[in-house]
Design a protein around this nucleic acid. Sequence first.
DNA 1: AACTTCACG
DNA 2: ACGTACGTGAAGTTT
Length: 884
Amino acid sequence: MPASKLVLIDGNSILYRAFFALPPLTARDGTPTNAVYGFTTMILRLLSDEKPTHLAVAFDKSKTTFRHADFAAYKGTRQETPDELVQQFPLARRTLEALSIPMIEIDQYEADDVIGTIAKRAAESGFDVRVVSGDKDLLQLVDNRIHVLLTRKGITEMEHFDEQAVARRYPGLRPAQVIDLKGLMGDPSDNIPGVPGVGEKTALKLLSAFGSVEGVYHHLDEVQGQKLRERLEQHREDAFLSKRLATIACDAPIDVDLEALRYEGPDPARAIAWFRELDFRSLVDKISEEMSHDSTPPASPAASNGAAADWDAFTYDVIEDAGAWQEAISAFSEPVGVMMDLADPDYHRADIRGMAVATPKRAYYVRFGERLELSDVRPWLVSDRPKVAFDLKSMAFALDAHGIGLTSQCGWHDAKLAAYLLNPQDGDVELDQVFARERGQELPAIKEGEREKWLVYTASQLPPLFESLAYTIRSQEMEQLYQEVELPLAFVLAKMEITGFYVNREKLIAFGQELAERIERITQEIYDLAGTSFNLNSPKQLGEILFDKLGLPAMKKTKTGYSTSADVLEKLAPMHEIVQKILDYRLLAKLQSTYVEGLLKVIRKETGRVHTRFHQTLTATGRLSSSEPNLQNIPIRLEEGRRLRQVFEPTYKDWVIFAADYSQIELRILAHLSGDEALIDAFRRDMDIHTRTAADVFEVPPEQVTSLQRRQAKAVNFGIVYGISDFGLAQNLNIPQKEAKRFIESYFEKFPGVKRYMDEIVKQARERGYVTTLMNRRRYLPDIHSRNYQLRSFAERTAMNTPIQGSAADLIKLAMVRIDRAMRDAQMDARMLLQVHDELIFECPKDELAALEVLVRDNMENAMTLSVPLKVDTAYGPTWYDAK
DNA sequence: AACTTCACG
DNA sequence: ACGTACGTGAAGTTT
């Protein structure tokens, strides 16, 4: 049994040291945080290095202490504490609260005295004691059980002093003599006088000869040097006063039970939430990481709130009949974690074997079979009893196959959605990553034969996980976004995935055959022109043919060789017949491999439909993405590709495909966010925005805008939304960079509000470390402070783009939730099929078309009230192609 | 697994 | 002097 180890920290001293040692640092609201940051990193370092069993931080309580009664000028030369530091003391206290570290302070005593008193008492009780400070005075406390750690240059580096180390630092000095040393030398920083003319060297010599201040004066006549003797004589009072002032009171009236200082580790959720508030991003990661590695007691992080149950000791009951099920659920009052036991990791083809239902207190595995069917648990699953899942959409999908339709009324929460809102830049994260990051908890690996136990254990941990996440969601004002948008949307998306989109397989195959013939023909033509056959799909081989064999000029290089991208080939097209054919080949090959073959692979035999997956927790901006197949990038720009849309048909004869898309949604949002008068005016007048932009930028009447000018203005508008650069615009328009620069300057002159907004949002990103959307969706931009130009510029463009792109995502998501609800209320048969960022696709019986049009338009246009109107265009037809 | 290219908003 | 447009997914080649 190792001895108990008490670490005592001199809070004031460490905060001062950190404040002066670290460069200015602020939280998003401008509050200075550098001292707290240093203080916190130092404490975290101590926790991992020293592994204390007991811990406390001492603070000075009041400005005056018993020492001022003795000597009014004590610490009289101290500069006023800078305001930036004063502000950080309350933050430091809150930090300690968040880390569950006790604080101690006693009226009329300094932190030193508190530390000295407790240190001595603890040492007597057999503790190993470590005192942490930046103040050398504390060295007087050193003995064989008490060691002192003094900060060195930085803040986390510590010098460890035991008795030998003190003697090395002050040759021949015993710790108890530190006060005598101070008595003779004085200490300008505390305005302790000492004996003038006596410095460290002299004082040490005197003390090695006479042992103490008292000894020195007792043997004053033996002191070498007349001048020194005179000075000592003259300042006898000062010497004794100085020694008294330097002496730490180890008998302060403190009523502290040492056991109350026992340290069980912080509650990671609390710590992380607080560090987030302070914008200590690196510490959020660090604490998650450290805690996930450090699961051994006594520093078990979550032991204090009983959150992290012990895996080895974890037990659960198995429920196999309806009676046991009823009994189990009737006893739950708090939120229950639920994990479905799917037979296949792919939720689109998964069968439900069982279900884990658990809280940290009671845990069950529900096994479905003859005595208990899924339908028996249906009432509970759809009830409003609070339940926490991880990835509700997949659960809703799987349950639908059993006739159980979850809705937003069913009392569910989704920890995955909450985690995504807090850290969208992490992408689609798995359960274990969320536990590690949010709770500092390492989930056990799923071992052979322990699958059920793993599911039940994990389910039991979901409620506390969600509680942490929800706390932070609320503190970041994203509750509405979570409650009213993302959570209900999960059910809408599940339904859309379940519905799927009917694909006419015969048409698709016929289209593929047509493509195959054309590809065959064009391939032969290219080989003839090249004089050799090669792999047309290989940019490397193609580059050799074009640039080496045919001697065409290489315009651009990639990491690995010549670039053969479309924009390069387009420039080369006039120079050789082969180039256009290669472009044509690429177009056809893309359609064939990605769309015809790709789509054929994912048509479900049973339904004749494709069931895309919408990823709700993936993009950094809040958009959805779509995969297997991706139905958000079906060709439209070129007629050749657009024809693919003819294979997407309604499920039933006499139904139609109905499409509704927002007109210029991103520029309208920019108008709203920036408040730019010209832009707002343009939208209020419902003008063609690109023509209006061209008229302003090129200073011609709108009627006289040429098609080239409009095209260029359109590119400028895109550039603005993306976070413009002259280089990017030049590249896009294939014009000189200088000219692009003139366009941009001219744009900002005509739309000064946009310029102001762009400057402001970048500034805000720098100050807060993140940007937000209309619904408070947040994206962190750590690179905004990078010294690397490229990274910093990228972060700045992202700062400009994300509020626009993300707000558009908020808007259409909100519209989807409302449309779904309205369609259900109206008991429509029509179904929402797809979302493509600014448009929604439905299939609809012809006789519902008029009602659907009104319902959809109304909900899309009025999803939010902005300073410009929102405009929606609609269309319908027998196939997706015709809904234009 | 990384790279290139290209489809969409 | 630097070297980019914002957000995605899929296919094919090369390493």
